[in-house]
Amino acid sequence: MSASALVAPELRRSSLQWKLAQRKPFQRSVNAREASEAAHFDPAVVGYVSRRFSQLHTPPDPRAQAAFRRILQGVVTASTVFPSVSADEDGAVVAVWRCGPLSLQIDVNVDDSFYVRASDRDSHTLREWYEGAFPYTAIQGFLRDLSRRTAKVNPEWHRLYE
């Protein structure tokens, strides 16, 4: 009997899952659903964000940009709406997604630390994260809901970014 046969199927990881889980500084465990979504990653979002960085009067620090791109690769798919991006006074990336009452803000600092805030219309915080491992699974779900809401309101939203 092979060693992998002794491990429950839900605990086995493909080579893609291991690569995703071993990315630093944002280490995380990856399940089959996440790996499937990562396999459907659309580089258009990262391309758009990179172009926006270059168009900013004061772009974020390159280290913060690289860390934010790694995060994007772990949370966006082809159906994810694009964020608004800017830099704060310390060179951190500030990305915001909004649709109706929902908003998501992700700040990524030069030192790879992060701040994530999901909120509703009244700026009531639904959830915040700022330490430990980056909350990839939670952010994927929030962005999926926000993107579905966007597609219902404006099915042609992607044309705004062409």
Rank of each mutant, 00 (worst) to 15 (best):
72 L>S: 02
46 V>W: 01
126 L>C: 11
78 A>V: 05
9 P>R: 10
149 R>Y: 14
148 R>A: 08
67 A>L: 00
125 T>H: 13
73 Q>Y: 07
102 L>W: 01
132 G>S: 13
149 R>A: 14
10 E>C: 00
124 H>E: 12
72 L>I: 08
23 R>I: 00
11 L>Q: 03
26 F>C: 01
156 E>G: 02
40 H>L: 00
19 K>E: 09
52 R>C: 06
9 P>S: 12
143 L>D: 10
68 F>V: 02
31 N>Y: 04
118 A>K: 15
76 V>R: 04
27 Q>F: 08
158 H>G: 07
159 R>P: 03
48 Y>G: 02
37 E>Y: 02
86 S>C: 05
121 R>S: 13
32 A>C: 02
89 E>D: 14
12 R>A: 00
8 A>I: 01
20 L>M: 07
126 L>W: 08
47 G>M: 04
111 D>W: 07
73 Q>I: 06
131 E>G: 14
120 D>C: 10
161 Y>C: 05
117 R>N: 12
25 P>F: 03
140 Q>T: 11
145 D>N: 14
153 V>D: 12
121 R>M: 11
151 A>D: 14
122 D>A: 10
139 I>E: 02
140 Q>P: 07
30 V>W: 12
84 S>H: 11
43 P>W: 00
123 S>N: 15
142 F>S: 04
119 S>T: 11
113 S>Q: 12
14 S>H: 09
78 A>P: 01
90 D>P: 03
105 Q>R: 15
51 R>W: 02
134 F>N: 14
63 R>M: 12
125 T>Y: 14
52 R>M: 13
82 F>H: 08
92 A>L: 02
39 A>C: 11
110 V>I: 10
9 P>N: 12
